[in-house]
Amino acid sequence: MIFELLRGRGRVAVAVAALVFFAVYPWFASRFMITVLVQCLIMAILAMSLDLMVGYTGMASLGHAAYFGSGAYAAAIVSVTYKASFPEALAVGLIVAVAVTAVFALVALRATGVYFLMITFALAMLIWGLAYRWNSMTGGENGIAGVQRPSFIAGTTTFYYFVLAIAAAVFVFFGVLVRSSFGRTLVGIRESESRMRTLGYNVWLHKYIVFLISGLFSGLAGVLWVFYDSLVAPPLVDLSTSFDALLMVSVGGGGTLVGAVLGAVIVKMLENLVNLVTDRWLTVVALVYITVVLLAPQGIIGLLRDLMARREMNRAALEVAGRANASAGKEGSK
């Protein structure tokens, strides 16, 4: 049954069901659970933009807190220190995130594989260092508090729908993007860079553009987060944010947008709900990391796909065997 949901009409049904679920959710959930889902949706945007790099293009970035964080910090600074409006803060947040990405990508793209991981990680430390120590600009340890939402999205529920609409739009945009010829090129790069190069593609440029898109949307998530949480502080941009984002992609399954969203929801839920149950939440989260990596490296969606493929193979095998049997039977009866 579950496998039919991943195919053709089943997929549409799932999408519709999910949309209906998200749309009616505020009617029956408490205000707290609505804010938790807001967190999930914002993180889903971050996870999807990371997935575009990790899952589709094969560039594992360990520093997405930097792009998320620079968007968040820029928006908070202009909105609190310079009293900018929401659209202005949004614009500045996105511009700064893209600018930071544009520079960092130049450095990071000189490496691949595990070196790429290392370099993105190191570059993210730079942003953390600035957030933490550049007191006059970032408020240092204090961070910047008091970011206010404009009145049209001030309420918990209206803000929820606002974020939902943006997340859905990002989902659709990414969906179109990965199915375009550009998206197929990305997958080609993931599979074999050298082959794509021989075929005449400018691999570097493709990677650079993907990095920029990813940084832009991570920045968008950062800006939304600031307007959700009303403050920024250094822990928002430390390495655990980068790891969390990667975990989300891995839990859901890299290379699938649905997986990224699912991963974001699961990880954020865990963070919010586990410590209601036990004081040992660190261990629980640790075990999630370890089990996901060991048992489900391709994530939930990947597992489902594998099983589906295996089932189909079995069915095909059975059919072949059945046909063979049948013909053997006929022969026998002759």
């Binding site: 990790v54 594992a60 360990l62 594989g113 595990v114 991981l117 790891f243 990667l246 975990l247 891995s250 040992r280 660190l282 261990t283 989260v285 640790a286 075990l287 999630v288 990391y289 370890i290 996901v292 990596v293 060991l294 490296p297």
Partner: peptide
Amino acid sequence: NDLGQVLITFGFVLLLQD
């Protein structure tokens, strides 16, 4: 599996901290 390795080492950070 570079990514898996780095993720699992972070898992051990949390586990050892606890």
